[in-house]
Simulated scan of single mutants.
Amino acid sequence: MDAPEYTAYFEPIEPPEGDDPSYEYFQPTVAVVSVWSPQIQHGGPPTGLLVRAMENAVDPADGQRFTRVTMEILGAVGLGVNRVRTTIPRPGRQISQVAAELEVRGEDGTYRCAARTTAWRLLASDSSDIEDLPQPPLPKGPDELPQNVGFPESVEIPEAWRHMGFIGTVTAAAQPGRLRGSSAVWLRPNLPLVAGETTSDLAAAFTVIDVANGLGAGLNPVEWSWMNTDTTVHLVRQPTGGWTGIDSKMAAGPDGYAASFADLYDTTGFLGRSAQTALLSAVTAR
Protein backbone atom coordinates (compact mmCIF):
# COMPACT_ATOMS: atom_id res chain seq x y z
CA MET A 1 0.00 0.00 0.00
CA ASP A 2 1.38 3.42 -0.94
CA ALA A 3 1.72 6.25 1.58
CA PRO A 4 -0.96 8.95 1.35
CA GLU A 5 0.08 12.04 -0.61
CA TYR A 6 0.67 14.64 2.10
CA THR A 7 3.34 17.32 1.97
CA ALA A 8 4.30 17.17 5.65
CA TYR A 9 2.90 16.64 9.13
CA PHE A 10 2.69 20.41 9.75
CA GLU A 11 2.41 23.43 7.48
CA PRO A 12 3.98 26.63 8.85
CA ILE A 13 1.56 29.56 8.80
CA GLU A 14 1.56 33.24 9.71
CA PRO A 15 0.13 34.15 13.13
CA PRO A 16 -3.65 34.58 12.89
CA GLU A 17 -4.68 38.21 13.19
CA GLY A 18 -4.34 39.46 16.73
CA ASP A 19 -2.40 36.43 18.00
CA ASP A 20 0.94 36.62 19.82
CA PRO A 21 3.77 36.77 17.23
CA SER A 22 6.34 35.39 19.70
CA TYR A 23 5.05 31.86 18.92
CA GLU A 24 5.62 29.72 15.82
CA TYR A 25 2.31 28.81 14.18
CA PHE A 26 1.43 25.61 12.31
CA GLN A 27 -1.53 23.96 10.65
CA PRO A 28 -1.50 20.18 11.21
CA THR A 29 -2.32 18.07 8.14
CA VAL A 30 -4.43 14.92 8.23
CA ALA A 31 -1.17 12.95 8.27
CA VAL A 32 -0.99 13.48 12.05
CA VAL A 33 -4.32 11.80 12.87
CA SER A 34 -4.48 9.36 15.80
CA VAL A 35 -5.76 5.79 15.69
CA TRP A 36 -8.00 6.63 18.66
CA SER A 37 -9.98 9.43 16.99
CA PRO A 38 -9.94 11.32 13.66
CA GLN A 39 -10.31 14.56 15.67
CA ILE A 40 -6.98 14.38 17.51
CA GLN A 41 -3.32 13.95 16.71
CA HIS A 42 -1.23 10.88 17.30
CA GLY A 43 1.31 11.62 20.01
CA GLY A 44 4.28 11.26 17.66
CA PRO A 45 4.10 14.31 15.36
CA PRO A 46 3.55 16.89 18.15
CA THR A 47 6.43 15.34 20.09
CA GLY A 48 8.65 15.70 17.03
CA LEU A 49 7.48 19.29 16.56
CA LEU A 50 8.39 20.20 20.14
CA VAL A 51 11.80 18.53 19.84
CA ARG A 52 12.40 20.52 16.64
CA ALA A 53 11.52 23.71 18.51
CA MET A 54 13.95 22.87 21.32
CA GLU A 55 16.74 22.09 18.85
CA ASN A 56 16.17 25.43 17.13
CA ALA A 57 16.29 27.28 20.47
CA VAL A 58 19.81 26.18 21.43
CA ASP A 59 23.28 26.75 20.02
CA PRO A 60 24.30 23.58 18.15
CA ALA A 61 27.97 24.54 18.60
CA ASP A 62 27.87 24.66 22.42
CA GLY A 63 28.98 21.01 22.67
CA GLN A 64 25.90 19.83 24.57
CA ARG A 65 23.66 16.94 23.55
CA PHE A 66 20.02 16.08 24.27
CA THR A 67 20.12 13.30 26.87
CA ARG A 68 16.63 13.13 28.35
CA VAL A 69 13.36 14.33 26.86
CA THR A 70 9.97 14.18 28.59
CA MET A 71 6.74 14.85 26.71
CA GLU A 72 3.63 15.48 28.82
CA ILE A 73 0.26 15.31 27.04
CA LEU A 74 -1.96 17.75 28.93
CA GLY A 75 -5.07 17.26 26.79
CA ALA A 76 -6.23 16.22 23.36
CA VAL A 77 -3.88 17.68 20.75
CA GLY A 78 -6.42 18.87 18.23
CA LEU A 79 -6.26 19.63 14.52
CA GLY A 80 -6.85 23.38 14.79
CA VAL A 81 -4.01 25.89 14.58
CA ASN A 82 -1.07 24.77 16.73
CA ARG A 83 1.47 27.19 18.15
CA VAL A 84 4.81 26.48 19.84
CA ARG A 85 7.13 28.51 22.05
CA THR A 86 10.37 27.55 23.79
CA THR A 87 12.15 28.68 26.95
CA ILE A 88 15.47 27.83 28.59
CA PRO A 89 14.68 27.38 32.31
CA ARG A 90 18.24 26.37 33.19
CA PRO A 91 21.08 27.74 31.05
CA GLY A 92 24.60 26.42 31.64
CA ARG A 93 27.90 25.56 30.00
CA GLN A 94 27.91 21.88 31.05
CA ILE A 95 24.26 21.21 31.93
CA SER A 96 21.21 23.02 30.63
CA GLN A 97 17.49 22.50 30.36
CA VAL A 98 15.25 23.60 27.50
CA ALA A 99 11.45 23.45 27.41
CA ALA A 100 8.69 23.93 24.86
CA GLU A 101 4.91 24.11 24.93
CA LEU A 102 2.33 23.43 22.23
CA GLU A 103 -1.00 25.26 22.35
CA VAL A 104 -4.08 24.46 20.27
CA ARG A 105 -6.50 27.11 19.03
CA GLY A 106 -10.14 26.40 19.78
CA GLU A 107 -13.18 27.33 17.74
CA ASP A 108 -13.62 30.47 19.87
CA GLY A 109 -10.10 31.65 18.97
CA THR A 110 -8.58 31.05 22.40
CA TYR A 111 -5.61 28.77 23.02
CA ARG A 112 -5.01 26.03 25.56
CA CYS A 113 -1.77 24.24 26.34
CA ALA A 114 -2.08 20.65 25.09
CA ALA A 115 1.51 19.38 25.39
CA ARG A 116 4.72 20.30 27.14
CA THR A 117 8.30 19.02 26.79
CA THR A 118 11.41 19.43 28.88
CA ALA A 119 14.87 18.25 27.91
CA TRP A 120 18.21 18.03 29.66
CA ARG A 121 21.31 18.71 27.61
CA LEU A 122 24.75 17.63 28.83
CA LEU A 123 28.22 18.58 27.62
CA ALA A 124 29.61 15.81 25.40
CA SER A 125 33.09 14.36 25.96
CA ASP A 126 34.94 11.15 25.09
CA SER A 127 33.81 8.27 27.32
CA SER A 128 34.38 5.50 24.75
CA ASP A 129 36.89 3.74 27.05
CA ILE A 130 34.09 2.88 29.50
CA GLU A 131 31.24 2.38 27.01
CA ASP A 132 28.89 -0.29 28.39
CA LEU A 133 25.55 -0.88 26.65
CA PRO A 134 22.80 -3.20 27.94
CA GLN A 135 21.91 -4.67 24.54
CA PRO A 136 23.81 -5.43 21.33
CA PRO A 137 22.47 -4.02 18.04
CA LEU A 138 19.28 -5.55 16.71
CA PRO A 139 20.06 -8.70 14.67
CA LYS A 140 18.90 -7.17 11.39
CA GLY A 141 18.84 -3.63 10.11
CA PRO A 142 15.88 -2.22 8.20
CA ASP A 143 17.54 -2.79 4.83
CA GLU A 144 17.77 -6.53 5.58
CA LEU A 145 14.02 -6.87 6.22
CA PRO A 146 10.83 -6.50 4.18
CA GLN A 147 9.59 -2.93 4.47
CA ASN A 148 5.97 -1.82 4.58
CA VAL A 149 4.16 1.49 4.62
CA GLY A 150 2.16 1.05 7.80
CA PHE A 151 2.62 -1.96 10.06
CA PRO A 152 3.22 -5.43 8.60
CA GLU A 153 1.10 -8.45 9.48
CA SER A 154 3.80 -9.82 11.79
CA VAL A 155 3.29 -6.93 14.22
CA GLU A 156 0.58 -7.69 16.78
CA ILE A 157 -1.59 -4.58 16.58
CA PRO A 158 -5.28 -4.16 15.66
CA GLU A 159 -5.83 -4.76 11.95
CA ALA A 160 -7.71 -1.47 11.52
CA TRP A 161 -4.68 0.47 12.75
CA ARG A 162 -2.12 -0.84 10.25
CA HIS A 163 -2.53 2.06 7.79
CA MET A 164 -4.61 4.53 9.78
CA GLY A 165 -3.69 8.21 9.98
CA PHE A 166 -0.13 8.81 11.11
CA ILE A 167 0.66 5.07 11.06
CA GLY A 168 -0.04 5.06 7.31
CA THR A 169 2.74 7.62 6.76
CA VAL A 170 5.49 5.55 8.39
CA THR A 171 7.67 2.86 6.83
CA ALA A 172 8.12 -0.16 9.11
CA ALA A 173 10.26 -3.29 9.11
CA ALA A 174 9.75 -5.93 11.80
CA GLN A 175 11.72 -8.79 13.36
CA PRO A 176 11.37 -10.82 16.58
CA GLY A 177 12.02 -8.70 19.65
CA ARG A 178 13.86 -9.42 22.87
CA LEU A 179 11.16 -8.32 25.32
CA ARG A 180 8.88 -11.26 26.17
CA GLY A 181 7.84 -12.26 22.67
CA SER A 182 7.42 -8.78 21.27
CA SER A 183 8.25 -7.60 17.76
CA ALA A 184 11.13 -5.18 17.34
CA VAL A 185 10.08 -2.70 14.68
CA TRP A 186 12.17 -0.29 12.65
CA LEU A 187 10.27 2.92 11.91
CA ARG A 188 10.96 5.86 9.64
CA PRO A 189 8.57 8.78 9.01
CA ASN A 190 8.02 9.26 5.28
CA LEU A 191 7.16 12.95 5.49
CA PRO A 192 8.99 16.06 6.61
CA LEU A 193 7.94 17.15 10.05
CA VAL A 194 7.45 20.73 8.80
CA ALA A 195 6.81 21.53 5.14
CA GLY A 196 9.86 23.00 3.41
CA GLU A 197 12.33 21.73 6.03
CA THR A 198 14.68 18.78 6.42
CA THR A 199 13.85 16.89 9.61
CA SER A 200 16.79 16.26 11.94
CA ASP A 201 17.57 12.70 12.98
CA LEU A 202 16.68 13.62 16.58
CA ALA A 203 13.27 15.04 15.66
CA ALA A 204 12.58 12.10 13.31
CA ALA A 205 13.26 9.64 16.14
CA PHE A 206 10.93 11.46 18.52
CA THR A 207 8.24 11.58 15.84
CA VAL A 208 7.96 7.77 16.02
CA ILE A 209 8.96 6.86 19.61
CA ASP A 210 5.42 7.45 20.91
CA VAL A 211 4.40 4.38 18.86
CA ALA A 212 6.05 2.19 21.53
CA ASN A 213 2.85 2.36 23.60
CA GLY A 214 0.84 0.74 20.81
CA LEU A 215 3.50 -1.77 19.78
CA GLY A 216 3.98 -3.19 23.25
CA ALA A 217 0.41 -3.38 24.47
CA GLY A 218 -0.82 -6.70 23.08
CA LEU A 219 -4.41 -5.68 23.92
CA ASN A 220 -7.59 -5.78 21.82
CA PRO A 221 -8.96 -2.21 21.31
CA VAL A 222 -12.48 -3.64 21.04
CA GLU A 223 -12.09 -4.57 24.71
CA TRP A 224 -9.58 -2.04 26.06
CA SER A 225 -8.13 1.40 25.44
CA TRP A 226 -4.66 2.40 26.65
CA MET A 227 -3.97 6.04 25.90
CA ASN A 228 -0.64 7.29 27.22
CA THR A 229 -0.21 10.55 29.09
CA ASP A 230 3.52 10.98 28.64
CA THR A 231 6.72 9.73 27.03
CA THR A 232 10.14 9.95 28.68
CA VAL A 233 13.27 9.01 26.74
CA HIS A 234 16.78 8.60 28.11
CA LEU A 235 19.47 8.62 25.41
CA VAL A 236 23.04 7.35 25.68
CA ARG A 237 23.95 8.94 22.35
CA GLN A 238 22.32 10.92 19.57
CA PRO A 239 20.28 9.05 16.91
CA THR A 240 21.59 8.94 13.38
CA GLY A 241 20.37 7.65 10.03
CA GLY A 242 16.63 8.38 10.18
CA TRP A 243 15.54 4.89 11.30
CA THR A 244 14.47 4.14 14.89
CA GLY A 245 14.19 0.59 16.21
CA ILE A 246 11.62 0.04 18.97
CA ASP A 247 11.43 -3.12 21.08
CA SER A 248 8.53 -2.49 23.47
CA LYS A 249 6.44 -4.30 26.06
CA MET A 250 3.62 -3.04 28.29
CA ALA A 251 3.45 -3.88 31.98
CA ALA A 252 -0.26 -3.77 32.86
CA GLY A 253 -1.08 -3.46 36.55
CA PRO A 254 -4.25 -4.57 38.37
CA ASP A 255 -5.58 -1.07 39.12
CA GLY A 256 -6.37 0.46 35.73
CA TYR A 257 -3.02 1.84 34.64
CA ALA A 258 0.05 0.52 32.91
CA ALA A 259 3.54 1.41 31.74
CA SER A 260 5.13 0.69 28.38
CA PHE A 261 8.90 0.25 28.36
CA ALA A 262 11.03 0.11 25.21
CA ASP A 263 14.61 -0.43 24.19
CA LEU A 264 15.50 1.99 21.40
CA TYR A 265 18.01 1.53 18.59
CA ASP A 266 19.33 3.16 15.48
CA THR A 267 21.18 1.36 12.72
CA THR A 268 24.49 1.62 14.62
CA GLY A 269 23.22 0.03 17.85
CA PHE A 270 21.57 0.65 21.21
CA LEU A 271 20.29 4.20 21.61
CA GLY A 272 18.42 4.42 24.92
CA ARG A 273 15.13 3.60 26.61
CA SER A 274 11.63 5.03 26.77
CA ALA A 275 8.85 4.79 29.34
CA GLN A 276 5.18 5.75 28.99
CA THR A 277 2.25 5.81 31.42
CA ALA A 278 -1.11 4.64 30.09
CA LEU A 279 -4.65 4.73 31.45
CA LEU A 280 -6.33 1.36 30.98
CA SER A 281 -10.07 1.53 30.29
CA ALA A 282 -12.37 -1.41 29.64
CA VAL A 283 -14.49 -0.51 26.61
CA THR A 284 -17.46 -2.50 27.92
CA ALA A 285 -17.41 -0.48 31.14
CA ARG A 286 -17.78 2.92 29.47
Rank of each mutant, 00 (worst) to 15 (best):
P152W: 01
Y6H: 15
R180D: 14
A262S: 15
D255P: 06
I95M: 13
R178L: 12
V51R: 00
A172E: 07
M227L: 15
W161E: 09
G109W: 11
G272I: 02
E103H: 12
G241R: 02
L179Q: 15
I13R: 05
A76H: 13
G256T: 07
V211S: 15
A3P: 09
A252F: 00
V222P: 01
T284W: 10
N213W: 07
G43H: 07
E223T: 08
D126L: 03
F151C: 11
V32E: 05
T267P: 08
G106T: 05
S125Q: 08
D266S: 04
T231C: 13
V30I: 11
R237F: 10
E156V: 14
G214V: 09
D201E: 11
D132Y: 09
R180G: 05
T240R: 15
A119C: 05
A205W: 00
A262Y: 01
A285Q: 11
Q135V: 03
F206W: 08
I246V: 13
T67L: 12
T29N: 06
L219Y: 13
R68H: 07
A259Q: 15
A251Y: 11
R85D: 08
A160W: 06
P158T: 03
A8V: 02
F66N: 00
G75Q: 12
D62N: 11
W120K: 10
S34W: 07
A251T: 13
N190K: 09
L122F: 10
A61V: 08
D62Y: 10
P152Q: 03
S182Y: 01
L193S: 06
V208Q: 01
A114V: 06
P89N: 02
L179D: 14
A259T: 15
A204P: 03
G272K: 04
R116Q: 12
G106A: 08
V222S: 15
R90W: 05
N190Q: 13
Y111G: 04
F66S: 00
P189Q: 12
I157D: 03
D247Q: 13
P12Q: 11
A57E: 07
A61M: 12
E159V: 14
R188A: 10
